[in-house]
């Protein structure tokens, strides 16, 4: 069994507790316009070209393996569970001392659920704390299989309006919400994560709908992920247009206003995830 992985990032301190290693699965059924990791979307490996790194040596002839400067780089590598496990276990001493662990993210981890479930199972067997980060857009059976071995589920709640969700993200929000209900029902520890994207998710109605839902389900913690432009150069590297390249990031005041509102309703709010 193999999965297409586009990055394994160590010392991440924003996706679940403690010092964590994040495994990024490649391929996502959604197409969020603000996606900061455009290389995560396609289910196939692809070549990225970092223009700033190219030294114009003409050695590569378009072959990433021959590019000396690393400007041309293949994104996505098919890896076995053993290979991924070997890589993530390299930081186990840090997981132990910091209360950290491994987070599976994407792309969409649900799209490669069998592999992910096996990886999580083996991690739990080794006593390692696990988390998944998902849009919830996938089959319940797949999600249930992951939930079995995930200590924390970071659950994206982006656009609550069904029509807008369909149109903007390409996701049926009914599936997402049903899956959430079942996770809560199962007693899983779910933390909603809300991207704060001006003009898409930050309106009062959307935030209120999310917080109503979270309150109804008795969820205590909410993570807010303010929009940033760090991913914009990646679109260029992939030779793609980026629709939000001129969108201004939200101000601290705007972010804090939403934070305060949620805190007033009794939520523990973390900006950037923690």
């Amino acid at each position: 069994m193999r999965a297409l992985i586009f990055n394994i990032q160590r010392y991440s301190i924003h996706d679940g507790g403690g010092i964590r290693t994040i495994v990024f699965f490649k391929g996502c059924p959604l197409h969020c316009p603000w996606c900061a990791n455009p290389e995560s979307q396609s289910f196939e490996s692809e070549i990225m070209k970092l223009k700033s790194q190219c030294i114009h040596c003409n050695v590569c002839a378009g072959n990433a393996a021959e590019c000396p400067s690393g400007a041309l780089a293949e994104q996505g590598k098919w890896m076995s569970v053993d290979e991924v496990l070997a890589e993530v276990l390299k930081d186990s001493v840090f997981f132990n001392t910091s209360g950290g662990g491994v987070t599976l993210s994407g792309g969409e981890v649900l799209s490669q659920a069998d592999f992910a479930a096996e990886l999580l199972r083996q991690l739990k067997e080794l006593g390692i704390h696990t988390a998944i980060e998902t849009s919830g857009f996938g089959r319940w059976e797949a999600l249930e299989g992951l939930a079995e071995y995930a200590d924390v589920i970071l659950y994206d709640l982006k656009i609550m309006d069904p029509e807008q969700s369909k149109k903007t993200l390409g996701a049926d929000s009914e599936i997402i919400l049903k899956n959430l209900a079942k996770l809560v029902d199962k007693g899983c520890r779910v933390i909603p994560r809300v991207p704060l994207i001006p003009g898409f998710t930050m309106d009062e109605k959307n935030i209120t709908t999310i917080s109503d839902l979270a309150q109804r389900y008795g969820l205590k913690e909410i993570h807010l992920l303010p929009f940033h432009q760090y991913g914009s150069s990646k679109y260029e590297s992939l030779g793609r247009d980026y629709a939000l390249k001129d969108l201004a990031v939200p101000t601290d005041e705007e972010v804090n206003a939403i934070k305060s509102k949620l805190e007033a309703r009794g939520f523990m709010v973390v900006i950037g995830g923690g």
């Binding site: 301190i13 403690g18 010092i19 001493v93 840090f94 001392t97 910091s98």
Partner: peptide, 8 residues
């Protein structure tokens, strides 16, 4: 997290 790093 820094304490965790130092303990490691």
């Amino acid at each position: 997290k820094m304490i965790g790093y130092l303990q490691a």
